[in-house]
């Protein structure tokens, strides 16, 4: 049971991560890449959480919250940066 769950979720998450990485690679704009890396972080978080559920421990929980916050701070920072830089270009 444990092995089946681990294998199935590993396959699904790998496919999802491949999709996100593909979007990071081709993403036409910076914002697309930010969005895709946010999803990649969420996939990593899901992997950490699945490990915790299957092996019954809570060691990764703080890491999970930290991942959420890193994703948040990262995308907000980049979004601000993009808006600012583009504004200057429009003005000139």
């Amino acid at each position: 049971m444990k092995d089946i769950v681990l294998i199935v979720t590993a396959v699904i998450l790998s496919l999802a991560a491949a999709g996100a990485i593909y979007r990071i690679a081709v993403g036409p704009s910076l914002l697309d890449r930010v969005l895709a890396s946010d999803v990649l972080l969420a996939i990593l978080g899901a992997a950490l959480a699945i490990d915790m559920a299957v092996n019954r421990h809570l060691n990764n929980l703080v890491l999970l919250v930290a991942l959420t916050l890193i994703g948040f701070v990262g995308s907000v920072t980049v979004a601000r940066f993009v808006a600012d830089r583009r504004g200057q270009v429009n003005d000139s």
């Binding site: 769950v5 199935v8 979720t9 699904i12 895709a36 969420a42 899901a46």
Partner: peptide
């Protein structure tokens, strides 16, 4: 767990 993993896959499909 499998439903949660499928959600990640759904997000990736949407991205693509």
């Amino acid at each position: 767990l499998i439903a949660g993993a499928l959600m990640s896959l759904g997000a990736a499909i949407g991205l693509l």
